[in-house]
Design a protein around this nucleic acid. Structure first.
Lengths: 165, 165
DNA sequence: AGATGCAATGTTATGCTATTACATCCGATT
DNA sequence: AATCGGATGTAATAGCATAACATTGCATCT
């Protein structure tokens, strides 16, 4: 997945490795925690990892249907719920979509950067930022359950190629 | 609106003052910028400010219908688009809802704290936090268009009364 | 007045996102 | 075999948002 020190995935990165890595991590994590990575859950995770762009539930649904499974919405949403709950994917609220988590199982608070042009999303976990949010919350006696930080804009690759196309 | 130094609105705060203030600010801002705060836009803003809980578009729609207006979804969404665009309200992505902005017209990046129990949302604008996000983005050559920070949890009042109810 | 242009609103239909409620299946345990 | 619980199947519906096109109403120019 890496393409130098910029976390944005290069066009040329070995994406198969991303997928393999994600699935392997998921299997390890589920085995360790006694969770069942069923075929559907595994397949949904795999579809989410087809790229670095957040995928909608119905997009996944259609791909499964194209394969002959023809599941119904609850089936997909249940798989997504499982994956989100166990921190294998992040929900991207600003897009109503789901993207693979790069630190699976880790109870981190991610910051997600999403490109308006190409749709690619990358995740960062700035502990300092996270702590600042927690500190602000404490300052008003607010008990944090979840924090979501989503930043939209133009990714480096699209910025470079802005003159083209 | 203020209830001491904690930004969470007290049960006893003078909410009429919140609404009056918000509407007055909106009128001033629209006048200054040559924008038209039409009756529908004004009414939608007023409905959003009926409380400090984010309100859904269809919730607003139903209230308007109850008053005899019977608008259709696009009418409400157009008003909401206007209010969001001109920074009179914030969209709360994690709830698909809209809440009044306490710094109308100001191009700030807000952090919104939302109580899971009572639904109240309050807004903070921590410049340090905002700059940290921008700095992180710059670090990966990402051009920020918009940043949304939403924190869910339990507000101070609900935390106090957790033993009750 | 009449013509023109533009922003706002009305109207109809539809698309996309998500959940409720209930039935069935299947493997593990007793 | 009986039972139990988690996972999945199925049908219906709820909730959120927009596309496409018609109409209105006001400002401006002639």
């Amino acid at each position: 997945m890496s393409a130098g020190r910029n976390p944005f995935p290069s066009v040329r990165h070995d994406h198969r490795a991303c997928v393999d890595h994600a699935l392997h991590d998921a299997e390890t994590l589920c085995a360790a925690q006694g969770l069942r990575l069923t075929p559907i859950r595994r397949r949904v995770l795999e579809l989410i990892w087809q790229g670095h762009k957040p995928r909608g539930a119905y997009e996944i649904l259609e791909q499964l249907a194209a394969e002959g499974h023809k599941p119904s919405p609850p089936t997909v949403y249940r798989a997504l719920d499982f994956l989100v709950e166990h921190r294998l994917v992040h929900r991207v609220n600003s897009r109503n979509a789901f993207v693979g988590c790069v630190h699976p199982g880790d109870p981190h608070a991610a910051q997600i950067f999403i490109c308006d042009r190409c749709g690619v999303a990358v995740e960062q976990s700035d502990g300092t930022l996270q702590r600042r949010i927690l500190r602000n919350a404490q300052g008003m006696h607010f008990l944090v359950r979840e924090q979501t930080v989503e930043i939209t804009g133009i990714c480096p690759r699209c910025a470079e190629h802005q003159h083209e196309a």
